[in-house]
Simulated assay, not measured.
Amino acid sequence: MSSTPDAGDASEDERGVVAPEPAVPDERLLAAHDLALAALYEITPAATVGAPADYALEADGVVSLRFETTLPGYPGWFWTVSLAAIEDAEPTVLEVELLPGETALVAPEWVPWAVRLAEYRAQQAAAVEAAAAEALADPDAADEDVDLGEDDDLDDEDADDDFDDLDAADFDTDGSPILHSGDVDGVDIDELDEDADRDEV
């Protein structure tokens, strides 16, 4: 004969499984703000401790009281004081620390150098494989002419005209144009000297 759980029994679900009762924090710990503040003032100036924020119920009935921090550069962080009370004893401080909240700006998780190096080498190997696969897929891509663009096109006729205007004396023995150290902005110093000689005669 199967038993049906009572509809008014809130501790059992539809399958008859008894749900654990929610843990209730010790009221003495929740009210121990003075004790928590005294512990904080031993490690940090009172000016760095802000208003009470909230609390967290830890394992074994430990309660962590959180206070806002006024330290510059620590938005979203909280001064945290963990308190405990054993049987009829007075609350005692277990730990005091500055911990980040959910919106705090924290450093990324540290990754060992060996792991980062392995990831880098894997990325480099993948890039090489991708380039090789692209070259195999389009072998003629490497032989294509480079597009210089409209502004970079060379006018062969203009280039020939410039060379036609030069005399044999303007070329060195190897066929390259002679550059005069005194030439400025296309003005040939030798021609200026010849003009000066004519004016003197």
Rank of each mutant, 00 (worst) to 15 (best):
A59R: 10
A56E: 10
V62S: 00
S64Q: 06
T44D: 03
A47Y: 06
A31F: 03
A10Q: 04
D54K: 14
P5S: 09
D26G: 09
R15Q: 13
S2C: 05
T44Q: 07
A59W: 02
P22W: 00
S3N: 10
V18W: 01
I43W: 06
D9I: 03
D13G: 11
S3E: 07
L30S: 08
G50Y: 01
A47K: 15
R28D: 04
L57S: 03
A47E: 14
P5R: 10
P52W: 02
T44P: 05
T4S: 07
P20F: 02
L37V: 14
G61F: 02
D34C: 04
E27I: 15
P22R: 08
V49I: 15
V24Q: 04
L40Y: 05
A31K: 14
E21P: 02
A46R: 14
A56I: 13
D6C: 12
T48A: 13
E27F: 06
G50M: 07
L29H: 01
E12Y: 10
D9W: 02
A51M: 13
D6Y: 08
A23C: 06
A23T: 12
L29V: 08
L57T: 07
D54S: 15
A47R: 15
A56H: 06
R15A: 13
A10I: 05
A59I: 13
A31M: 10
P52C: 10
G50S: 07
S3G: 13
E21W: 01
G8A: 14
A46P: 03
I43H: 14
E58G: 13
P52K: 10
A36F: 03
A7E: 05
D13I: 11
G50K: 07
A10T: 06
A36P: 01
P45S: 06
D54N: 14
A36Q: 02
A23G: 12
V18P: 00
A53V: 13
S64P: 03
A39D: 04
R28V: 12
L40E: 06
R15W: 09
E27P: 09
H33M: 12
D6T: 10
L57Y: 02
E27A: 15
E27T: 15
A32E: 00
D26H: 07
A23K: 11
G50A: 09
A19R: 15
L35P: 05
E27M: 12
E14K: 12
D9K: 03
A10M: 06
A51S: 14
